[in-house]
């Protein structure tokens, strides 16, 4: 109910917002430029105070996909158990989006992980550097054009023999 009201208000307020529902989960697709405003609107005026997750999907090999990256923001309310999924599309030369760390400080590490894994740049993020992989790593491994076994990074070390101490 809360979700329905919020989605209606959202489509009235921001032109170009598409909404649909799948298995009882409300989803909206917004333009990347208005993403920050949409999330702020949902948080401040429609009780979606909790950011559950930020993630990304690389649609490189997905059938009928028109855009490369789909950024996914999952929001929830504190009490009534309502949820909404906000998605936006980004494309390759410069996958750039505004950060939401000013809305939720917990978004800090989530955005760093998306940068680490997909190479999406979050403009305005206070400390955007790799989080899970070593700093020397050069690729973004969850992109679909990166092979599962990697490109040999995992064995780029010197072996230690007995007697070397």
């Amino acid at each position: 109910m809360i979700t329905g009201r919020a989605v209606d208000a959202l489509t009235a307020r921001f032109p170009g917002v598409q909404s649909d529902e799948f298995r009882g989960q409300a989803r909206v697709v917004v333009h990347p430029d208005s993403l920050h405003d949409v999330l702020a609107f949902l948080r401040d005026e429609h009780q979606f105070q909790l950011l559950i997750d930020i993630t990304c999907v690389d649609y490189l090999h997905y059938r009928d996909a028109t855009d490369r990256y789909g950024l996914v923001y999952l929001l929830a309310t504190l009490e009534q158990g309502a949820r909404v999924t906000v998605r936006t599309w980004l494309n390759d030369p410069d996958p750039v989006i505004a950060t939401v760390t000013d809305l939720w400080s917990g978004a800090d590490w989530l955005e760093r992980e998306v940068w680490d894994m997909f190479g999406i740049v979050f403009v305005g993020h206070p400390d955007l550097r790799r989080i899970l992989l070593p700093d020397q790593f050069t690729s973004h491994p969850l992109r679909k054009d990166y092979p599962l076994q990697g490109r040999g990074e995992r064995h780029n070390f010197t072996a230690i023999r007995r007697g070397e101490a």
Binding site: I52, L78, E79, W104, S105, G106, A107
Partner: peptide, 17 residues
Amino acid sequence: IQRCTSGPIARASGVTR
């Protein structure tokens, strides 16, 4: 809430979710 916590951590801080 700001830091997106959940479960026992959030409940120990008074979030009833």
